[in-house]
């Protein structure tokens, strides 16, 4: 059996059992931390579809988390609280935003694409800060949250935990399927050699745009869940530093690997916690660690964790 599947089984098994284990340790704080890592992982997996499989280095991906979160928050503020309706709104808004910004950004590739996604991300960030009616710079605390068939089972506690876990699983499974599908294969072909893919008969930009929209919509869903978890939304979700964090997660975890984004997300959240508990200025260590990792330990932790399982680019 594939080693990465074993890793995944252990990971999801642990996450599934966590609500039963945590009361034994007696830590509600830990459960929040795990939800945080899972939400990070969902957004990171979607970014891996772009960067790992598609070769499109976007530095504005967190903006879609922000757009999804704000779409949800604004809908909630206006009395929409059915989770399915919220999901629909989030998907529509993030998908549309991605359609517009993607059509422009994908006229270019490489470093231009990187800078343009960065710029569009920043534009979205500033747009969110100027939403005076919804908190502006300071963000917005939400007094009503999503319900499912009128029940508030998703408002905190295990209901929310399992919703996030279920979404993580669906994202993990779905993106893996996509990467192996006909569509994913064209996406990887375009990453490898766009000219050749074009001369195989594939309109590369269209495929990239679809991937860009899928990734944005998944990121948007992580934003929806984030609102439900934090009961608060702020433009800080959409800063480009957040986008940078997402890149760190997927590179640390290993690009285009089955579990890389999840491992990377948990690794980062744990490192932040552990370093942060020793020294308040943990970023003084974290920053140079990143630099050293790039200079000396290419390939990410997935190579350290599972030297054989991670093949760099899965094919």
């Amino acid at each position: 059996m594939d080693r990465s599947l074993v890793t995944a089984a252990v990971l999801f098994g642990l996450l599934l059992a966590m609500p039963f284990l945590l009361p034994l340790i007696g830590s509600a704080y830990l459960s929040g931390l795990i939800i945080k890592a899972m939400l990070l992982a969902i957004a990171a997996i979607s970014l891996d579809l772009l960067i790992g499989h598609g070769g499109m280095i976007s530095l504005g991906h967190a903006a879609f988390v922000g757009v999804g979160a704000y779409a949800t928050a604004i809908a909630l503020e206006n009395g929409v609280d059915d989770i399915f309706l919220l999901l629909l709104i989030t998907l529509a808004v993030t998908g549309l935003t991605a359609l517009v910004s993607g059509s422009l950004a994908l006229r270019t590739s490489g470093l231009y694409f990187l800078m343009i996604t960065l710029a569009f991300g920043q534009m979205i960030y500033f747009t969110l800060t100027s939403l005076a009616a919804y908190g502006g710079d300071d963000g917005l605390t939400l007094w009503s949250l999503a319900t499912v068939f009128g029940s508030n089972v998703l408002q905190g506690g295990n209901g929310l935990y399992y919703l996030v876990l279920g979404t993580l699983f669906a994202t993990w499974w779905g993106v893996y399927r996509i990467s192996r599908s006909r569509f994913g294969r064209v996406l990887r072909a375009a990453r490898d050699n766009p000219e050749r893919a074009e001369v195989m008969g594939y309109p590369v930009v269209r495929f990239r745009l679809i991937a860009y929209m899928i990734a944005a919509m998944i990121a948007g869903v992580s934003g929806l869940l984030l609102v439900q978890h934090a009961e608060f939304v702020s433009p800080a979700l959409a800063t480009w530093q957040r986008s940078g964090d997402l890149i760190v997660v997927i590179v640390l975890g290993g690009l285009a690997t089955r579990n890389g984004a999840i491992l990377g997300a948990f690794f980062i959240v744990i490192v932040e916690e552990v370093l942060g508990s020793f020294i308040h200025e943990w970023r003084l260590i974290y920053g140079p660690l990143l630099v050293l990792m790039v200079l000396f330990a290419k390939g990410g932790i997935s190579h350290l964790l599972m030297p054989k399982g991670a093949k760099g680019y899965a094919s």
Binding site: V251, R283, G287
Partner: peptide, 25 residues
């Protein structure tokens, strides 16, 4: 100097690390 020939993702990560460090410093 060690990053000129690396791919853009490496450049992004390393310079991102420098930003984090200097801002915190």
């Amino acid at each position: 100097r060690h990053l000129y020939n690396r791919d853009h993702l490496d450049q992004v990560l390393a310079t991102f690390g420098i930003i984090i460090f200097l801002n915190e410093l």
